[in-house]
Nucleic acid binder design. Structure first.
Length: 483
RNA sequence: GGGGCCGUAGUCUAGCCUGGCUAGGAUGCAGGGCUUGGGCCCCUGUGGUCCCGGGUUCAAAUCCCGGCGGCCCCA
């Protein structure tokens, strides 16, 4: 299984990624005349939409309500929470003019929506009886990135920001909500077959304005970590800043507690990256805009040609009426081999070849994209076999992705081992830690990595000593190169 | 934040150092022929603000300055 090479995929990931999003017509990046902005093309848009379908389902089924807030946030509102604006100040886009006239109050293109959503929660929510309240929206957010931008991974317009914002009548309930957020994201990534590592971000790298941040990261083919989801407990920071109080059961007034959690375009990027190979995309059948492609292989005579085409269309009809997303590639100017490469690049999970042989024997030739394995299936059992095959492909993609991710995690006890890791291996490094920022910063400098955080949930019995200061370890800590 | 490389047709690219002829090729696209079980072949055609602005020059894709954009490496 897994016979397609992954040389370019792993050793030249950046170029591979640029190539695949163009070849598969997912996302057009680098040609739009504004830095850090790209275009979702129809095929990519469908992939994105199917992912969002799952995102919506997971939120809706747990009592979240979808809303839509304005894009513009007035400066004074964005500045209300001091830590928040400190964290975002350097990367906010400002609208400063209306027509030719300067505006009295500058308007920010939202970098995130805690402030303006809290502003409305304050208007709408008066009592603990209305809580918990869970809103979410899926919108564009803007960040004036100063680092190098990358398609889908570091954008100035993040076009697919799902941000959830919740309100609670106690700290305990907000803690419970963080757990629910983590469960939602777990399930999302499970369904997409994207491996994930959950960490509590270090104090110095938490969301601006949060008490703490729990983050999901995945490991990209080049061994760098990509943050693909975060959940924040905001405590009362924003409700205090906006003077948002509710009445509790005992009649007292109190600032409610909040959480927020988000995922972005990066989920699509991760899906493409973790499942790809040197031929292109490999899409899980639930996400694939086209699940089955039928390639007619015409025989010599006009009559044979017609028979093959008739059979192809008849299979198409049968699958379509059972809800399978299927197309017949009837293009006459391409030979079958060229069509194989074409659809493989687009990640279509299953291909059916229909030639004279298939017409005459009633046995269909099926090729699966994940392994390129070919199977013979009697036409009469096609549908049930396909359903089983979809499931198998989905599980196989997930397993291959997890195997790769696991192979990129290394745990060591000494700084010598860590340095050895840094010189030859990529991925995630785990080391015992005393908990002091100073020691982590030293490791960051020595190994040229970033602190990812500590395991979530935390491990029971951390062993050993901090290899830097020798103090007893209170946890392990993770390091990696990141996007 | 610092350093480096780069920008020529939808895509990839030659030409740039050493300024000068109609900016050449591959791929794609359109038409025709031939073919069809892993990227066929042949013919014809199509497609260019040489990233943008300024400067030097008789003459700029080429040299200089600035901007915009992309990639890589280091903090």
């Amino acid at each position: 299984m897994g016979s397609v090479p992954r040389d370019r995929w792993s050793s030249d990931f950046s170029r591979w990624f640029d190539w695949v999003i163009e070849e598969a017509e997912v996302y057009d990046y680098g040609r739009y005349p504004v830095k850090g902005m790209g275009v979702w093309r129809p095929y990519g848009f469908q992939i994105r939409r199917r992912i969002l379908d799952i995102v919506r389902e997971l939120h809706d089924s747990r009592g979240h309500e979808e809303v839509l807030f304005p894009l513009l946030i007035p400066e004074d509102l964005l500045r209300r929470e001091a830590e928040h604006i400190k964290g975002f100040e350097g990367e906010v886009y400002w609208v400063t003019h209306g027509g030719v006239d300067p505006l009295d109050v500058k308007l920010a293109l939202r970098p995130t929506s805690e402030t303006n959503i809290t502003y409305y929660e304050n208007l709408w929510i008066k009592s603990y009886k209305q809580l918990p309240k869970k809103y979410y929206q899926i919108v564009s957010v803007f960040r004036y990135e100063t680092k190098a931008t990358r398609p889908m991974i570091r954008l100035r317009e993040v076009t697919t920001f799902k941000e959830a914002h919740t309100v609670h009548d106690s700290f305990e309930d907000s803690e419970r909500q963080v757990l629910e957020a983590i469960e939602i994201y777990r399930e999302l990534f499970e369904r997409l077959g994207i491996p994930y590592i959950i960490s509590r971000r270090p104090e110095w790298d938490k969301f601006a304005g949060a008490l703490y941040t729990i983050a999901f990261d995945t490991i990209m083919p080049d061994g760098k970590l990509l943050q693909i989801g975060t959940a924040h407990n905001l405590g009362q920071n924003f409700t205090k800043a906006l003077d948002f109080k509710i009445q509790l059961a005992d009649g007292t007034l109190e600032y409610p507690w909040q959480t927020s959690y988000g995922v972005s375009d990066r989920v699509v990027a991760a899906l493409i990256a973790v499942h790809g190979d040197d031929r292109g995309l490999k899409l899980p059948p639930t996400i694939a805009p086209i699940q089955v492609v039928i390639i007619p292989i015409p025989g010599g005579s006009e009559e044979d040609k017609a028979r093959v085409l008739r059979e192809s269309r008849s299979i198409e009809e049968a699958l379509k009426s059972s809800g399978v997303r299927v197309v017949v590639d009837e293009r006459e100017d391409l030979r079958p081999g060229a069509k194989y490469y074409y659809w493989e690049a687009r990640g279509v999970p299953v291909r059916i070849d229909v030639g004279l042989e298939e017409v005459e024997t009633g046995m269909l030739t099926i090729a699966r994209r994940d392994t390129l394995e070919k199977l013979k299936i009697p036409r009469g059992r096609l549908l049930e076999e396909l359903r089983a095959l979809f499931k198998d492909i989905e599980e196989n993609l997930k397993e291959m992705a997890w195997n790769f991710a696991r192979s990129m995690i290394t745990r060591v006890d000494t700084i010598e081992e860590a340095e050895k890791w840094a010189s030859e291996k990529k991925g995630l490094l785990e080391i015992p830690w005393c908990g002091r920022e100073e020691c982590a910063r030293t490791v960051e400098e020595k190994l040229e990595v970033k602190t990812i955080g500590t395991p979530w949930p935390s491990e029971d019995a951390p062993r050993g000593k901090c290899p830097l200061c020798g103090a007893p370890a209170i946890t392990i800590v993770r390091y990696a190169k990141t996007y």
